[in-house]
Simulated scan of single mutants.
Amino acid sequence: MKTTPRFEAAIKKLYTAFHNNTLYPECCKQCAVGNILDNTDSWKHISDFHGSLKLNYVGKIHQSFGRKFNGYSPLELLQIEAAFLKACGFELPLHYKNKKPKNPTNKNVLFNGLSKVIELLCVLDNIANVMDYQQLFEFEKANVLA
């Protein structure tokens, strides 16, 4: 399967963070986007609220200039983060009064978020979902019937 360099880099960083226990949804440096952007939090300045899909003034400027952060536009970064947080069980945007999972660092919770991010990254790069295991069974079924 042919993928893009930004996809490969993002997947590698997310996979490493997941297995090294450095994926933490509530931290701007250790969330999905924070890890994709090399554990920096500068991306938080493109929106007023963590988990929001709305660019603020700074975000709109970067978006209109075509600025990319490790290959991703500001709007794509917000989509990635929102997908991650929502799949982890957070009510968006993040706020202490909003619903959140009891244990946000639980591996099952993080895996759900990570799976949704990978699905979105595939959509953004127009490639088949690498997490879709159904293709494996269709391949095996085709080989059995042949």
Rank of each mutant, 00 (worst) to 15 (best):
A32P: 07
V33C: 05
N35P: 00
I36H: 07
I36Q: 09
I36V: 10
I36T: 04
L37F: 10
L37D: 05
N39R: 11
D41Y: 13
S42C: 05
S42M: 01
W43N: 01
K44L: 15
H45S: 10
I46T: 02
D48V: 03
F49S: 12
H50F: 02
H50Q: 14
H50V: 05
G51Q: 05
G51Y: 00
L53P: 12
K54G: 02
L55S: 08
L55I: 01
Y57L: 15
Y57P: 00
Y57S: 14
V58C: 00
G59H: 02
K60V: 00
K60L: 14
K60T: 06
H62G: 03
H62Y: 15
H62W: 12
Q63Y: 09
S64N: 02
F65V: 05
F65E: 00
F65A: 03
G66Q: 08
R67K: 12
R67E: 12
R67V: 14
K68S: 09
F69I: 06
N70Y: 10
N70H: 11
G71V: 00
G71K: 02
S73E: 01
S73L: 08
S73C: 04
P74G: 03
P74R: 06
E76H: 11
E76T: 06
E76R: 01
L78C: 14
Q79S: 06
E81W: 03
E81M: 06
E81C: 05
A82W: 06
F84P: 00
F84T: 01
L85G: 03
L85D: 04
K86D: 13
K86P: 07
A87T: 04
A87M: 06
C88T: 05
C88V: 07
G89E: 10
G89F: 08
G89Y: 02
L92N: 00
L92M: 00
L92G: 03
P93Q: 05
P93H: 02
P93K: 06
H95S: 09
Y96V: 11
K97I: 15
K97T: 12
K99P: 05
K100G: 03
K100F: 02
P101H: 00
P101Y: 04
P101I: 01
K102F: 04
K102C: 13
N103C: 13
P104N: 05
T105G: 02
N106A: 11
K107N: 07
K107I: 10
N108I: 01
F111N: 11
F111W: 10
N112L: 01
G113C: 07
L114E: 07
S115E: 13
K116I: 07
K116L: 03
V117A: 09
V117M: 10
V117H: 10
E119I: 09
E119G: 13
L120D: 07
L121S: 07
L121I: 07
L121E: 01
V123F: 11
V123D: 04
L124Q: 13
N126C: 14
A128W: 02
A128K: 15
A128H: 06
M131Q: 15
Y133V: 08
Y133N: 10
Y133H: 12
Q134N: 14
Q135K: 15
F137M: 11
E138R: 13
E138N: 14
E138C: 10
F139Q: 10
F139I: 15
K141H: 11
A142D: 15
A142H: 09
A142F: 14
L145T: 14
L145Q: 15
A146F: 04
